[in-house]
Each structure stands twice: as structure tokens, then as C-alpha cells.
Amino acid sequence: MRRVVFSLATFIALAVVSFVGVDALPGDGCTALLGRFGTNAKIDACRQENNLNDSVVVRIKDWSGDLVRGDLGYSIKRDEQVSKIIIPRLRNTAVMAAVAALIAFPSAIVVGLLLGRYPRKRISKAINQFSVIAMTLPEFVIATVLWLVLSIWIPIFPGVSVMPSNASLLQLLPNVWLPALTLAVVIFAHSMRTMRASVTNVQNMPFVESARLRGTNERKMISRHIVPAALPPVVNVVALDGAWLLTGTFVTEAAFNFQGLGRLAIDAISDRDTALILPIILFGLAVYLVSSILADSLVRVFDPRLRSSNR
């Protein structure tokens, strides 16, 4: 509970910092809208109309009041409600993230467990080496390779998504696969290696040998002793990677022209559309805070020592 309150306070503080930071950048919605045709008089009139001449404190108050009421603001540049722009793209990114997570995390945990159990097998070493490569390659390289293989040589998936941002789920799905696979490769390597290291570590603990010497069979050894003890570090990595899937997919979305939150963020930044940038930043913040709270509570499920220390 204390944790939630603390996170909320962190969120508010960072929100204010973000607002002031974005505000301090040169340019605002009006200069963005009018571009190089904006004379001083026109810009000033525009600012007057949109209350941009008020002091920072007043604007923060107005903005946060709107936020609490569920109003994300208004993009002067795009002449549209911010929520109308963001929500469909958020859905697209969420679907892509979900597909990537469903592909990567379960397989990473299983493969990590097997690699940890049989570290000497040649196949284990090969997979391990491969995962180092997958982790170090930039996303655009993985994206290009996947595109080459799965779209050009074996044309299964469309190489570039040509769909409106508010396409229906059925239209969206074929376009999700390639970017989701790209992301899956990156997070698979990451969480698989964590699981492998954790299993290796747990297997050498005295309680594992102790259980074996009591006659615990192999199946129970894994399901009751090794896996629950090995999962906590993996949960934390999964939480971080999960948050990254929702907020850090700029490169992959750009590579496949996928109409998601990452693309939108890049566009908003290059347009200096401050009204649009801020909610995206706040969303990222919220995702990281929520995911770390979730991870911590999940770790408590696995470790009774953490449960009792807080009582």
C-alpha cells in the first residue's frame, strides 16, 4: 500500500517535471501549426486563443485538472482531441506487445529452464551463443532479416503495414506479426538468459541437494523446488521487458511503418506537437511504475520471507 502511494507521488512529481521540461523547449503548438509562415502577430493571436500565454503554474493547473477529468488535451497542430489520436495507436501497440509477449516469455522460461538443467549439452551452448547475438543485434537488423526471410523469400507476412491507425482487429492482425516477432527475439534472449542463470544458481543451492538426498523425484524437484526459487529474478526482467514492449518500440514500428504509439511519438517529436508528446511520456511513466509494482507483488507470491517482513 505504501508502495502504491509512493509510486503515485513519483508519478505526479515526474509529470510536473515533464510538463516544465517540454514547456522549456523552444516552440509550442502554435509555432508548430503555423510553421515558417507564422508571423509574430499570428503566433501571438494563436497563443492568446489557446491560453498559451498564461504562466506555467496556471497551465499546469488547467492541464492536470483536465487530466483528472479524463481529458488528455487538444493537439493544435493536428486539430484533434489527443485521446482520439492516441487510443487507436495504443491499441495497435498493445496488440503487438501482447503477441510478442505471448511468443517470447513462455518459451524463454521453458528454454531457460532446459538450458540451466543441461548446461553441458552442445545444443545448450549453441542456443546460448545465439541468444547473445540476438541480444546485441540492433532491432532494425533483426527487423530486416525477418522481413527478408518471412516476407520476401517465404512470403507469409506483409513486409510493410499499409493500414489506417484505426483499422479493425482483423485488418490489424496480419500486420502485427513481423514487428511482434522482431520484439520477441530481443526479449526472448533477455529473459531466457536470466532464467538460465537463475536456474543454474538455484541448482547449486544446498536445499536442492538436500531435497534430492531425501528422495524427491526429478519432476517434483523441478516443479516444487527449482522453478519457484528461480522465477523471482525472471519476474523482474519480464516486467521491465513488458514495459519496454509498450513504450520502447520506436525503431521496430518505424521499420515496419506500424501505426503504433512509437511511430506516433516520433512524429509528435519531429512536429514539436507538445500536446501530444506529454501524454505519451506520462503513459510510459505509468507503465513502468505499474509494472514494477506488479513485479514486486508477484515476487512476494514466490518468496514467503518477503511477505512476512512487511507485516
Partner: peptide, 28 residues
């Protein structure tokens, strides 16, 4: 083999190791 051992451990031979602080599984 591991299977033969797990049949013997506990029912015929049992060993209590030194590190009693770490010999019980912490989450069970």
C-alpha cells in the same frame, strides 16, 4: 541412475547436510 538413487534416498539411506540454514527450501 538418478531414478535408482531417488528410490534409495530417504527410504534406505538419508543424509542431513551441514548447512542447516540453507537445507530447507525457503518457499515451502
Amino acid at each position: 541412475t538418478p531414478a535408482e538413487r531417488s528410490n534409495i534416498y530417504g527410504s534406505v539411506v538419508a543424509l542431513v547436510a551441514q548447512s542447516i540454514g540453507e537445507s530447507l527450501t525457503p518457499h515451502l
